[in-house]
Design a protein around this nucleic acid. Structure first.
Lengths: 150, 150
DNA sequence: CTGCAATCCGAACGATACGGTCCGATTAGC
DNA sequence: GCTAATCGGACCGTATCGTTCGGATTGCAG
């Protein structure tokens, strides 16, 4: 139940890019790396994947760089994570592209995983880059609540 | 964002144990392995960890085995997963036992992770073994919803 | 038009952690 | 007191992740 380091860094980078959204200037990988503290080679790999997923627009050559393809309020955590890690699937049986669950047929729990998976993904999809770009979260008590489940 | 196979199997095993909760008879690792389809050695490793976490009560020697330490309705997914994988911490900076985040100090995103982490954990804590032991989930539309977030 | 410099893109290497297997320690029954 | 069945911990192979490196592409200056 741990996020990969790459996904963690990707969120940090996207958040930094969202903060510079006012200026139309493109941000290159070097600048993003310096600003966030992420190692440069790793940052390069990440912006590549994020661009391939359509979350960033890339421009090559001198003066090139990256820019958010959408407003920060229209990009959520789930998208960023899926761009780096692939589809959010807690178990292999949820991932429709793979049918290699050893138990499969007789597994009585399988039907429930889809619901749990949706709940977790929903928790991530509920947070946008715009919220992450804000200075600090509100500390006034519990902000998150699951109302119904399964 | 993928659950480890061990955690997946642990949920399946605990769910099977919950289904046999009526009888007071203990279940040994072999029986649970046969019933769930989980490889025996792996099942042994899992029940050991689950017992160490206090979710199962173990009895050694001939005629021994395992039993749920609490009613199925009082054990949730988060507990099972944490027993196998350790604390649920999406990022290293959420895990209070570790302070080895390379970015740390200047990271602007860090404060938000705690909230996201709580939301994900809440989604898992909302599902009990009693619900998993039921035959099948209700398919009547979307059952899960995040009302407020960060 | 040509050369240069900056940037993005894909492939190979090493390390960490997971998953699976085996053997020893312990306990209840005979 | 012995036997047998079961739990508990240690070892090893494997796969994925994370990092690093070199090549291809593009825009600007001369």
């Amino acid at each position: 139940m741990r996020l990969s380091s790459l996904a963690d860094y990707a969120v940090v980078i996207m958040s930094a890019a969202a903060r510079h959204c006012g200026g139309v200037a493109r941000l290159n990988a070097t600048t993003l790396a310096e600003e966030t503290g992420v190692p440069l080679p790793t940052a390069q790999k990440l912006v590549s994947r994020l661009a391939a997923a359509g979350l960033l627009e890339s421009a090559r050559g001198q003066g090139g760089g990256f820019r958010l393809s959408r407003p920060p309020s229209a990009i959520d955590l789930a998208e960023v994570i899926e761009a780096v890690e692939g589809p959010i699937a807690l178990t292999t049986c949820v991932d429709e592209a793979r049918h290699d669950c050893a138990l499969d047929g007789s597994c009585r729990v399988k039907p429930h995983w889809a619901i749990v998976n949706r709940a977790v993904r929903g928790a991530l999809a509920g947070v946008t880059l715009a919220q992450l770009a804000q200075a600090a979260p509100v500390h006034g008590g519990q902000q998150t609540k699951i109302v119904e489940i399964a």
